[in-house]
C-alpha cells in the first residue's frame, strides 16, 4: 500500500514536472475563483454602504 503510494507520487521519475504542473493548475483556478468572489462581495458591501440613506457622495 505504502509502496504503491510512493510509486504514484514519484510519477515514474517525472514527479518534479507533473506535480508542479498540477499545482499551478490548482493555483490558477483557485486564485481566479477566490479573487472574483471576493471582489463581488467587496463591491456589494461597499456599494450597500454608499447606498444607505443619509450617505451622500460629495
Amino acid at each position: 500500500m505504502m509502496a504503491s503510494l510512493r510509486d504514484f507520487l514519484v510519477m515514474g521519475g517525472y514527479a518534479s514536472f507533473v506535480w508542479p504542473a498540477y499545482g499551478l493548475g490548482v493555483l490558477v483556478l483557485g486564485l481566479n475563483g477566490v479573487l472574483a468572489l471576493r471582489r463581488e462581495r467587496y463591491l456589494l458591501r461597499e456599494m450597500a454602504k454608499r447606498n444607505l440613506p443619509g450617505y451622500r457622495v460629495a
Binding site: L37, E40, M47, A48, N51
Partner: peptide, 30 residues
C-alpha cells in the same frame, strides 16, 4: 464559464452603480 459569470457580475455592478435595480438589490441584501 463560472468564473466568467462571477467576473461579469462584478463588472455589471460597477457599470450600473447608479441604476435603480442595483440600489434595490443592495437594499435587499443589506
Amino acid at each position: 464559464l463560472a468564473l466568467l459569470l462571477v467576473r461579469a457580475r462584478c463588472e455589471i455592478l460597477e457599470f450600473e452603480q447608479r441604476a435603480q435595480w442595483v440600489k434595490t438589490l443592495l437594499g435587499a441584501s443589506d
